[in-house]
Design a protein around this nucleic acid. Sequence first.
DNA 1: AATCGTCAAGAGCACTGCTCTCGATTTATC
DNA 2: GATAAATCGAGAGCAGTGCTCTTGACGATT
Lengths: 232, 232
Amino acid sequence: MNASRTARERVRAELVREITDIARVQLASEGASGLSLRAVAREMGMVSSAVHRYFPTKDDLLTALIVDGYNSVGAAVEDADAAGPPDDFGARWLIVCHAVRNWALARPHEYALIYGSPVPGYRAPEDTIGPASRATTVYGRILGDAHRAGRLSPPDICPPVPPILSTDAEIIRSLMPGVSDDVITRAITAWTGLYGMISFELFGQFNNVVTHRAELFDHNMRGLARFLGLPD
Amino acid sequence: MNASRTARERVRAELVREITDIARVQLASEGASGLSLRAVAREMGMVSSAVHRYFPTKDDLLTALIVDGYNSVGAAVEDADAAGPPDDFGARWLIVCHAVRNWALARPHEYALIYGSPVPGYRAPEDTIGPASRATTVYGRILGDAHRAGRLSPPDICPPVPPILSTDAEIIRSLMPGVSDDVITRAITAWTGLYGMISFELFGQFNNVVTHRAELFDHNMRGLARFLGLPD
DNA sequence: AATCGTCAAGAGCACTGCTCTCGATTTATC
DNA sequence: GATAAATCGAGAGCAGTGCTCTTGACGATT
């Protein structure tokens, strides 16, 4: 009886997977707003109303793609960091930066879906916040490890952190215990700088301006590493 | 005869303006992909096919909105810099940063339209690259002025700039003559960091993480100013 | 074996971008 | 000033969309 129920649920899970796979292909070629439930159904030899039984609304399908996207980039970042030298914190930061960029360049539409402008009318459900933090957790671990090893010494160039930011810092400190508020705000700068640079490249802001994008990215991430206080 | 020709062209220009105005309102409430030519026509008491005579395709209307958006943020940045103290370069950078953020917070959908993920299938025509560079020109002028005044001394923390980036730097140097390649790459870091931070805030990446966003933004822009070598 | 829930299919609604045609009006030319 | 040409608004129409509702068949549960 248990097996029979799982039998039906298994085919359902299989269908869900197939739908998201086809939707991801369409996302890659058409973009988020060009995604069509009817086209997905057509591709599967289904009728459009049948797809609605698995994803009641288009937003639900988008949510599944967003969660998958966060998990995909999160896994890429985790794998990259795991394959790197555990004690070379500057290298780990660089490796992770390049992992995000390479992931984004390979799946520009998926990157746009999760880090670009939100789809209008779409409200991100809570299912996304867990997978969304996977990549961030890795950055935090790198900085936390560097701090614990006594190898995090940011240059003394920043103004003191306003006390009002301490409550926000407390949340982020759970990712990298023991670091100062100063390091936390620098981490946010580096982290937004990383995604800002990728977004500029992917969204066309570098057109007619920057041609050697990989080299510029690498160099600027090295600069941010120094700003963070990571060793060479 | 000249006046009569302008008579018709004047009403045409008026209609074009009215269409873009209504479209901008719809953009603010529905977002880029929710923009509808039929809805604009309905709002004007026109029939949808009449709107197509002024904007043959939806992309053409989007292009007009994009150009207007770039000009709007460009003008905001120019005005903010013009109203600031000409010789306090650190203050000018901060003022400009806040001008961009305030502009973006007031028009999140317009910001998303020009700095967010590109509308799928939309190909930006060349009309946009002029207005797009207005804001960037102001950053360049601030750094160029600071350099000319001998007040730009970036901290010596970054690795040397790879020679291959020199050709790219040449283009950007036209905005701020005389500065070194090192300053130029730092400028790109600061500039992408500025927009990366605003995008993270607007696109929901700070949800459940950062609450005091204005203060964090101000503090991080001050940190980037130090990274750039701007005086306190 | 009967029943209840799940499923694919189809019709249909309201909407979209876009094209075409048709008169009417305005502009330009002779 | 009359006439030819360009422009305009309106309407119908096409192909496509998300989504809802109903119908009939299948399979699992009691």
